[in-house]
């Protein structure tokens, strides 16, 4: 399968990248690890005439001291025992991304910004044309929930929920300089499978920062999928917290793989801080998360099953994080 021609740009610094991105306004894609973008390009999904390869921008590499460069390869995290020791929820999530070969090229930034997915979108040009193109590529209607306004493609990254549970911030470079924002603010909660991130034209994700307070949090990322490798999440639940004996000292919960953006559930977890988490309260938490999320029929497993699993996975993730805390 060949790629249609494009211009390939290889900036070597963040500033050069931002300038280039500004000059190409809207007519480019960033190329990070390529493990998501290039299959999509091979299937002629939303091609752009320019690719800005971030490979040579040294500042985007590396990890340490709570900073994760956007171009840091997932395999670097997977192989680092310090990640497992300091951020178990992140170690879980990294290890569950796709396959070892995808992790060898795939990057932190690429996973955070991975294209939303849908059975009707991740198909060849021939397949999509034969059904009628959809909202997300070349068309004007949704085949999942037939209407013309909103795209239901699912956010399918594994790292975002885990990093949200760690209170991570993202560092963004733009024409106006550097800025930081909470990771959840990177995603457009009011958007859909197409309008999904808040990144202005020309902005570049530089790094993720995990605050020192999140180091050593007990955590767990649990991923629902058919096979223990390859598959994108049909549900991803991330939990990080601290326990003081039986009492919850802090608790964060985020869920991906269900809606067009990952979601954090502070409103449900904050009230639990300071008291013991009984089985009943844990079950109530899990049920409420389940109630608030609405899977649609656009992945392999049926939506009612995925919904039910939200309850089970939330309960188990919290419980396993808590038990990790006790051990």
């Amino acid at each position: 399968m060949h790629l249609d021609p494009f211009a390939l740009h290889r900036p070597t610094s963040v500033d050069e990248t931002v300038r280039l991105a500004g000059s190409l306004a809207g007519r480019f894609d960033y190329l990070a690890g390529g493990t998501d973008l290039l299959p999509n390009y091979k299937m002629h999904l939303n091609l752009r005439p320019n690719l800005i390869a971030l490979e040579d921008v040294g500042e985007l590499r590396g990890h340490g001291a709570g900073r994760f460069g956007a171009m840091e390869r997932l395999a670097e995290l997977d192989d680092d025992p310090a990640i497992r020791a300091e951020y178990p929820v992140l170690a879980d999530a990294v290890g569950e991304v796709a396959t070892p070969l995808v992790r060898a090229s795939g990057t932190v930034g690429g996973n955070l910004l991975v294209e939303t997915r849908c059975f009707f979108f991740n198909q060849s040009y021939f397949w999509r044309e034969s059904l009628g193109f959809c909202l997300k590529a070349d068309g004007d209607r949704c085949h999942v929930v037939p209407q013309k306004e909103k795209c239901y493609a699912t956010f399918s990254g594994d790292l975002a929920p885990a990093l949200m549970a760690l209170d991570a911030e993202v560092e963004v470079a733009g024409p106006a300089g550097r800025s930081r924002r909470p990771l959840e603010a990177l995603y457009d909660a009011a958007g859909d499978g197409i309008r999904r991130v808040h990144l202005a034209p020309g902005e570049l994700l530089v790094a993720v920062h995990v605050p020192a307070a999140s180091r050593g949090l007990h955590g767990r990322y649990k991923k629902l999928r058919v096979r223990p490798s390859y598959d994108f999440p049909e549900l991803g639940v991330a939990v990080a917290g601290r326990w003081d004996g039986d009492r919850v000292a802090s608790l964060r919960l985020a869920v991906g793989g269900v809606e067009p953006h990952p979601r954090r559930f502070d409103a449900l977890t904050e009230p639990l801080v300071g008291s013991a988490l009984s089985d009943d309260r844990l079950r109530a938490l899990a049920d409420e998360v389940m109630r608030q999320l609405r899977p649609v029929h656009n992945t392999f497993l049926l939506p009612d099953y995925r919904k039910r699993m939200i309850g089970v996975y939330v309960r188990r993730a919290v419980d396993e994080a808590r038990r990790g805390s006790a051990s």
Binding site: S130, R227, S229, F300
Partner: peptide
């Protein structure tokens, strides 16, 4: 072979679920 009507929904090795070594 995941058909909806006459349409094959999973013509790929990603969505056709061959078991992995761990299985």
């Amino acid at each position: 072979m995941n058909y909806r009507g006459a349409r094959l929904f999973n013509p790929s090795l990603l969505e056709y679920k061959i078991p992995m070594p761990q299985q």
